[in-house]
Amino acid sequence: MKTKNSYITYLMLAPWFLGFVVFKAYPIIISFWYSLMEYPILGDPEFIGIANYKHILTDDPIFKASIIGTLKYVLIGTPCVLIISFIVAYVLNFKLKGVNFFRTIYYIPSILGGNVAVSILWGLLFNINGPVNTILNIFGIKSIYWVSDPTFAVITLILLKCWQFGSTMLIFLAALQNVPTSLYEYAAIEGVSKLRQLFSITLPIITPMVLFNCVNVLVKAFQEFNSAYLITKGGPNNATYFLNLYIYDQAFQSGNYGYASALTWILLVIIGILTAVVFSSSKYWVYYSD
């Protein structure tokens, strides 16, 4: 009886195991091998050692522009998304009527976010005659060339990222709702101000979720593709030519699979380092109740 059951257990796990080996473990290993090769579309791959990496790091101006654009997007975008999400979640957490309605409405941009239609829409919103400039004009500010100015192009894409704060906000909200109300009641009796309560009770308790959201948003931002590809097309002057775009072009437009694999590994290492920094710093600011 018992052996028969465990046999079925392994049978049920078999598809996952096969998928793990073929679609996860094998690709990641072989990808590093590819990064050490000159791998053109036609012809045989040729082993060239670390030449790809050497070229990328020492002799590739496009990579340099690409990494600067990517870092700007990630390092400005991530804190913006986290702060907006937290503030909105904080306001929503007060017992107000219609919270569920707002929660639902705020989540819509996130769920539509990656859609091509949204990227098209965003480009047109920030068009020289689009609504955003119309609003600026009302306040007496001159129209801005959002998409064709290198500085504003990155900002346009960061704003799109911020517009989609919904899922991050929902995770904060769930965490806020789990903070025991007795803590606030006790603080109120002691005469602690609302602001002090926010910094001394609320924020410390939800720091694990801040960490979770931070890593999540960071890793996703590093891989941004759709908005840069569709709205700014990587330009102007490669200002929004994010690494994912560069990798896509190298692999699927130029067919340099080896070079593109090396770029991928460099991006993975950067993501890994930044995530490790966030995690190792977490022991100073994340509070675990248990």
Binding site: Q223, N244, I247, A251, L268
Partner: peptide, 10 residues
């Protein structure tokens, strides 16, 4: 793992 890691080999 970032999804990007698997793209080219897949």
């Amino acid at each position: 793992m970032p999804e990007l890691a698997f793209r080219i080999p897949l």
